[in-house]
Design a binder for these strands. Structure first.
Length: 472
DNA sequence: TTTTGAGTTGTTCGA
DNA sequence: GTCGAACAACTCAAA
């Protein structure tokens, strides 16, 4: 290093693909030297059990947008393909960087990976420094009870979270000083080039600009009535920001900061807290990624592994219109309404008795917002094996009832299950109750145009309660 | 240490 | 169609 000249630093992007409200970026710039922004395509994430065509598509679009934004500021995103613990030390050496800065993550794989990278860097006398940035609270894992233990119930966590420290919302930099001479940027590959195919036919576009547009729209039009509409299935009453939050195109912290007072904003702030809560839970109970949080169900619960029923669920052929609409929305959009996720999850784990891990994995394959902590937390919750204090009978959802309550005019169901288009409203939640002549008239004969229900809900409910009682 | 209050999002049955 | 009761007791967090 030339004396007086500050070193370069490497800024390792992962799922913080933005320039606004980015503490690690700000810290890198404050060093005063060159900043080398880098992303490493990790083959273990592209081909492992959490691989996903649509989510990777969104990731690649977000990387292109990040590269564009960096170019406008006189820099480039350096992209490498390989194991981070090999790529980052070599990148750091090429850049002459003295440290690597990144945004800290909480999942078991992310933490193992970061430890491996930190070790590899340490061998060269370099340090990995982690900054906050993924969550609303500075460090959701640091929130603890008066006993110093982690929370396992949402409401007390929520109370503590509201009081937890927040970082200031940082502006995006107007320029990012590049390394003189630069570094070979590398190419952002196509989806096909990384061996994946898109799974959604109508996905949300990735990137920070798209995310900020969605955030702006939601803050202006969506938040005020959020508490009244977020449960309705057909209305665009939810934020739809989950993919942008997952990849950090939008900052949860900034989103919170921009909430006005009022019932709608408070209801949405509470939803943001769930992200931090499930991060908190997975950080403190990493084994939850694979096994039930509640020990009493861990070895004793008898899960079904019935392939045919699982396939009917995946493909939206259960004969329950709401469940089928939900599963087809997932296929089409790479996204599912939160209420629908619960109904679909309840149906798989309770009505079909199928292992929640199967549902969890299928969701991770298709969801653009697929997030290890949130997805796992919600699947365990609806399967009644996770951090939830309510007994199983409170978590068995009647799909027909939910349809009547949250999609009363059938717009959501008809949008995603076209063969039910002509079914009269009164029969839409339970189309198998249509008399034969109504079926003909509607152009929807049960068993020919639309499947008969694969299970009887009341009977399935009884059996589910027996399974849970037997496991205890 | 013991006690107390509370727990995201319900469903079914029978009057 | 609408209403209240029963479901089955348990664990967590904080005073």
């Amino acid at each position: 290093m030339l004396d007086g000249m500050p070193d370069a630093v490497l800024l390792w992007f992962r799922r913080d693909l933005r320039l606004h409200e980015h503490p690690a970026l700000t810290a890198a710039l404050e060093r005063g030297g060159a900043v080398v922004p880098a992303f490493c395509l990790d083959p273990r994430l592209l081909s492992g059990r959490h691989r996903s065509g649509s989510r990777t598509q969104f990731l690649l679009e977000s990387l292109r947008a990040l590269d564009d934004a960096l170019r406008e500021r006189g820099s480039r995103l350096v992209v490498r393909h390989g194991k981070p613990e090999l790529e980052l030390p070599s990148l750091a050496r090429e850049a002459g960087a003295s440290e690597v800065l990144a945004t800290g993550d909480i999942g078991p794989y992310a933490r193992r990976r970061d430890q491996a990278v930190a070790r590899a860097l340490a061998e060269r006398g370099l340090a990995l420094r982690l900054h906050p940035g993924l969550f609303v609270a500075d460090d959701p894992a640091a929130i603890h009870t008066s006993q110093g233990t982690p929370y396992t119930v949402f409401t007390p966590f929520h109370r503590a979270w509201l009081r937890a420290p927040r970082r200031p919302v940082l502006p995006a930099p107007s320029s990012v000083p590049a390394l003189p001479g630069g570094l070979r940027p590398g190419r952002i590959p196509s989806l096909a080039a990384v061996g994946l195919e898109p799974t959604a036919s109508d996905p949300a576009p990735g990137g920070e600009p798209a995310g900020r547009r969605a955030m702006g729209r939601f803050l202006a039009d969506g938040v005020p009535g959020y508490h009244r509409r977020n449960d309705m299935l057909a209305a665009e009453g939810t934020s739809r920001l989950s993919p942008y939050l997952h990849f950090g195109c939008v900052s949860g912290r900034e989103l919170e900061e921009r909430l006005a007072p009022g019932e709608g904003p408070e209801a949405f702030r509470r939803q943001l807290c769930w992200r931090d809560f499930y991060a908190h839970v997975l950080r403190h109970f990493p084994r939850n990624a694979r096994s039930e949080h509640q020990a009493r169900y861990r070895a004793t619960m008898r899960w079904s592994h019935a392939r045919r029923e699982f396939d009917a669920w995946r493909e939206g052929r259960t004969g329950y219109p709401l469940v089928d609409a939900a599963m087809r929305q997932l296929q089409r959009e790479g996204w599912m309404h939160n209420r629908a996720r619960l109904v679909a999850g309840s149906f798989l784990t309770k009505d079909l008795g199928i292992d929640w891990r199967w549902g969890e994995r299928w969701f991770m394959r298709l969801l653009i917002d697929g997030d290890e902590a949130n997805n796992n937390g919600n699947w365990q919750w609806i399967a009644s094996v996770g951090v939830d204090t309510q007994p199983p009978y409170r978590r068995i959802y009647n799909p027909a009832l939910h349809q009547q309550r949250f999609d009363p005019d059938g717009r959501y169901v008809r949008r995603h299950v076209p063969e039910l288009h002509g079914v009269p409203d009164g029969y839409l939640a339970e189309p198998w109750t249509m008399p034969a002549h109504v079926q003909e008239q509607a152009g929807c004969v049960i068993g020919r145009d639309y499947p008969a229900p694969i299970v009887d809900h009341l009977e399935a409910r009884r059996e589910a309660l027996e399974r849970y009682a037997a496991a205890r």
